Simulated scan of single mutants.
Amino acid sequence: MDLRIFTEPQQGATYDDLLRVARTTEAAGYDAFFRSDHYHVMGGADGLPGPTDAWLTLAGLARETERIRLGTLVTAATFRHPGPLAISVAQVDQMSGGRVEFGLGAGWFDTEHTAYGLDLPPLKERFDRYAEQLEIITGLWRTPVGEKFSFSGKHYTLTDSPALPKPAQSPAPPVIIGGAGKKRTPELAARFADEFNLPFADPETVLAQFDRVSAAATAIGRDPKEIVRSVALTVAIGRNDTEVARRAEAVGRDLDELRGNGLAGTAAEIVDRIGQWQEKTGLTRLYLQVLDLTDLEHIEFIAAEVAPQLG
């Protein structure tokens, strides 16, 4: 089981905060450090000191870490043009020595779009743009050096692009696709995804979506086993019930709700819960959403007391 730390810095974090978390993640032995790609706080927090840009952050972390994988859950297709985005991600992959994983979604949070002057088209158009972006970005990365890449779609046109720079990973960084859509999302995952992720859902919902992705892959002649199955869940884990309750309260979550919808409990309870998830869904990768970025001991505790028991 790969364990990855997943952060939500739009809730209020500086680059230095994220650097401390990433270094703790690496030292504790986790597989990866991931962050959201959002520009506006959610819920009741004030969001101070403000958002940090996902790919600027990961570029910095690429030079200040050595081993952990780095990526987004997930970059919104509405934020950036696919050509420049392909360049940015390829450069960060080079800067990290080939440790980037690229999560891309259609975009959804209307508040951040209106707050920063970004267009949020209707859902169908959003998915049309998203599909074109996936084709363009992966096409640019996979075009052999010395050849040109062109694309003519409804929303984007590229003509004789040199398709440079190339990422360090060949032919491309792993692509992560997620979401609960029952038709287009599985179809896009089958075509483009190295990993499929469904966050913050129950095992039955997750398994049903995994099965849709597998069916879509089979329909186009792809082995579904090529696509990693992963979920993301919020964590509040401690030595005893008092510590667990303190961690849930620190992030404004009701403990009983978090026990049902996330991973809240003692180490032994969480090991058992993750085992149930594995048995029900076949997942092999788990993103631990850590919301209190000042509680580095939380990250270290999970690595020491939960990870060794997962096998």
Rank of each mutant, 00 (worst) to 15 (best):
M95D: 11
T78G: 00
L61S: 05
L118A: 10
H113E: 06
N240I: 07
P174T: 09
A307L: 08
R99S: 05
Q289P: 07
A307C: 05
R246V: 04
R80D: 13
L48T: 14
E279L: 09
F301D: 04
P224H: 12
E8Q: 14
K148R: 15
V251I: 15
A217F: 00
G44V: 07
R23W: 12
A13F: 01
L291G: 04
D256N: 13
I176D: 00
G71P: 05
A216Y: 01
M95Y: 13
L3W: 09
F109A: 01
H81F: 03
T24G: 06
D93V: 01
L19E: 11
F79D: 00
T159S: 11
G221V: 11
V206K: 05
T111K: 13
V41A: 12
P49L: 10
Q10S: 10
F109Y: 14
A13V: 04
I5V: 12
L291P: 05
A86D: 02
P199V: 06
F102Q: 03
G107M: 08
L120Y: 03
T52Q: 12
R184L: 15
L18Y: 03
T157K: 09
A267Q: 02
T111D: 14
T72K: 06
L233S: 00
G83M: 11
T14C: 07
L198Y: 01
E249G: 13
A77G: 03
I220R: 11
V41K: 12
A215K: 13
L140G: 01
P203L: 10
V92P: 02
Q133V: 12
S88T: 14
A193G: 07
I136Y: 05
P186L: 09
P165Q: 05
T242E: 14
A115D: 10
G178W: 01
T65Y: 03
P199G: 10
D256Y: 04
G60F: 06
V213N: 04
R23A: 13
D223G: 09
N240Y: 04
L296P: 06
K182H: 12
E195S: 12
K124G: 13
R129F: 01
N261Y: 14
L123T: 15
N240E: 12
D256G: 13
H113V: 07
L310K: 08
T281W: 01
T234Q: 10
F34G: 03
L48N: 14
E269P: 03
W108F: 12
R23E: 15
Q276D: 12
Y39K: 07
T159D: 11
N261I: 14
L48R: 15
F33A: 01
G107L: 10
T294S: 15
A245R: 12
F210N: 03
E101P: 06
F127W: 08
I87C: 07
L291W: 11
V92D: 04
M95N: 09
V175I: 15
V89L: 05
G117D: 03
H155M: 04
T65P: 00
T242M: 14
D295W: 02
R80V: 09
D93H: 02
P144W: 08
A201K: 07
L73E: 00
L158T: 07
T294A: 15
A77K: 00
V235S: 06
A215M: 11
A45R: 15
D2W: 06
Y287F: 15
L120P: 04
A217L: 05
M42V: 14
A22I: 05
T75W: 04
M42E: 15
